[in-house]
C-alpha cells in the first residue's frame, strides 16, 4: 500500500477565531471596550462585577454584561440589580464560552448604547484559554483563598491574560496569603502583566481598577493586545 501526505494547515478553532475577529471589528466600530473575565469557580467574578457595574453606573458610565454559566440565571439576576443591561448565557454543560454564543446573545442590543461590555466566562481555568471571544482585554482573577501558586498551576490561562486581579484581599491576612509571592508567580508566567489587588466587599483597589478601565477606554495601547 502506498500512502501520500496531503498538507492542510488549517487552524482547528478557525471558525471560532473568524467569528471572534468579526466581533472584535464590531466592538471597535461601536467604540466599545470589551473585557473577558476568567477565573476558577468561586474566585468572586460576579461579586467583582456587581461592584464594578454599580460604581460605573453611579459615575455615569454605560456598562453592560454577558455572564456564562452551565445552568441558572442567578448571576445575571445579581448583576442586573446594578441597573445595567445583563444577559445570561447558559452553556448546558459546556465548560467555556465561544464566540458564536457571544454573537447570539448580542442580538437586539445596540452596541453604541454601551461604553464597556464585560463578559464573565464560565468558572474554569483551563478551557476558556483556547477561545477568543473578540475581547480587547482578558482579565484573569485569582482570590487569596486559592493560594499563591495558582498561576504556576494554570500557566496557560494566566499567560493569555492582560490583567490579573487578586480578589478577596480583605481575607489575605486570615489566609496567610503572600502577596509578594503571588505577584512574582504572575510575572513568571506572564512577564509585565498588570496586577490589581481588590476587595469587592470593602471596595479596596477599585479606584485603581476604574482608572485602568478609563485608560483602556481611552485606547491605552500597551494593554490593547489581541490574543491571536
Amino acid at each position: 500500500m502506498t500512502t501520500r501526505i496531503v498538507e492542510l494547515r488549517k487552524g482547528v478553532l478557525k471558525k471560532n477565531d473568524e467569528l471572534a475577529h468579526e466581533l472584535r471589528s464590531r466592538f471597535e466600530d461601536a467604540g466599545l471596550l470589551v473585557l473577558n473575565l476568567v477565573s476558577s469557580p468561586g474566585t468572586g467574578k460576579t461579586a467583582f462585577l456587581e461592584r464594578t457595574l454599580r460604581e460605573l453606573r453611579a459615575a455615569g458610565a454605560r456598562p453592560a454584561a454577558l455572564v456564562g454559566d452551565l445552568e441558572t440565571d442567578n448571576d445575571a439576576r445579581r448583576l442586573a440589580a446594578s441597573g445595567a443591561p445583563v444577559r445570561q448565557i447558559n452553556t448546558h454543560g459546556r465548560c467555556h464560552l465561544e464566540a458564536e454564543m457571544i454573537g447570539q446573545h448580542l442580538e437586539g442590543w445596540n452596541l453604541a448604547d454601551f461604553d464597556t461590555l464585560f463578559i464573565e466566562n464560565v468558572g474554569n481555568l483551563v478551557c476558556p484559554s483556547s477561545y477568543d471571544l473578540g475581547e480587547a482585554v482578558r482579565v484573569a482573577l485569582l482570590s487569596v483563598t486559592e493560594g499563591e501558586d495558582k498561576p504556576l498551576k494554570y500557566p496557560t490561562i494566566f499567560n493569555s491574560a492582560d490583567i490579573a486581579v487578586i480578589t478577596k484581599i480583605d481575607l489575605a491576612a486570615a489566609c496567610e496569603f503572600d502577596l509578594g509571592l503571588a505577584r512574582k508567580n504572575l510575572h513568571e508566567v506572564r512577564p509585565g502583566i498588570t496586577i490589581l489587588e481588590t476587595s469587592s466587599k470593602t471596595g479596596e483597589g477599585f479606584d485603581a481598577w476604574h482608572s485602568l478601565l478609563e485608560s483602556l477606554r481611552a485606547g491605552h495601547p500597551s494593554l490593547h493586545a489581541a490574543h491571536t
Binding site: 488549517k10 487552524g11 482547528v12
Partner: peptide
C-alpha cells in the same frame, strides 16, 4: 512576553492511501 510559538492548534496534514 514575546511568544513566537506555542499557541498552535492546527491540522498540519492528512495521510491518505494512494
Amino acid at each position: 512576553g514575546d511568544i513566537r510559538q506555542g499557541r498552535e492548534l492546527e491540522i498540519e496534514s492528512v495521510e491518505i492511501e494512494e
